[in-house]
Design a protein around this nucleic acid. Structure first.
Lengths: 126, 126
DNA sequence: TTCATTACTTACCAAAAGGTTGGTACTTGC
DNA sequence: GCAAGTACCAACCTTTTGGTAAGTAATGAA
């Protein structure tokens, strides 16, 4: 169905909600959801491993600082993409995983990854 | 050719080139390629219209400033995603379009858009 | 002569993103 | 008593990003 511009009658423009944020454009929503230097890599790791502890995630996402890792995880939790499970033990144990919405992004991420793969450099074979 | 130590035998780590930048990880490449507040929207508009003049793009990508539009277009041109055709006339006429590599991103963008669509808000019907 | 048009460019500024360092709480092992 | 291990927080700082406002070149129209 093609939506023409100024909706003449009672047609209302759709909005899209991610966590507590609202968007007019689905591309903007997606763009915002994955906006952050490490978010795609976090999702990628969680798509491979199902559940990961904070410290494991830190090892897998190479180069990320603790601050950014937590910050991104929190945002993604707010956005409903990531689950956080706390075990009341000492020393602390927290596991992160993808929610249903988060898992639904995996095919998209796969396409993004495949698109990136097509830019593989051709190496001379000495 | 610089090879870091990790590769014990003849195992070589692949690299991916976007314009003049090199990445170890295809996800990072993709992430970098679309990194910019307006880039996805620019690609989206160019995917719908095939070719657009600068001023038309400015109208279609709502809210973008001239500075950011040019800046992003230049980066995408360097990255090989966007074509720039200059007509030697006065007043100036420049058309932008997607390259083959740029067009190959359209299915990815479609998935991103569809993923965003799934977050449509349910509205109460008064 | 001055204006309009188009596709920029430049200078400057504010805000956001991200990095570094150091600290906390709690318990087990030495 | 002290260090180790875990999952964070808070301060501080630099870099990056994006926005605003103004100016430029070339030509034809008024």
């Amino acid at each position: 169905m093609i939506k023409t511009k100024k909706e003449k009658n009672n047609e209302r423009s759709a909005v899209y909600n991610l966590g507590s944020r609202t968007f007019d454009c689905p591309i903007e929503l997606t763009s915002t959801a994955i906006n952050g230097k490490w978010k795609l890599l976090i999702i990628y790791r969680l798509s491979l491993q199902h559940k990961l502890r904070f410290s494991q995630l830190k090892k897998e996402v190479k180069g990320v600082s603790e601050k950014m890792l937590i910050q991104h995880l929190k945002e993604m939790e707010k956005d409903g993409l990531v689950d956080r499970i706390v075990y009341p033990v000492v020393p602390p144990k927290v596991e992160y995983g993808l929610t249903e919405a988060g898992r639904s992004f995996i095919p998209v991420l796969d396409m993004m990854r495949n698109w990136g793969l097509s830019f593989i450099a051709v190496e001379a074979t000495t």
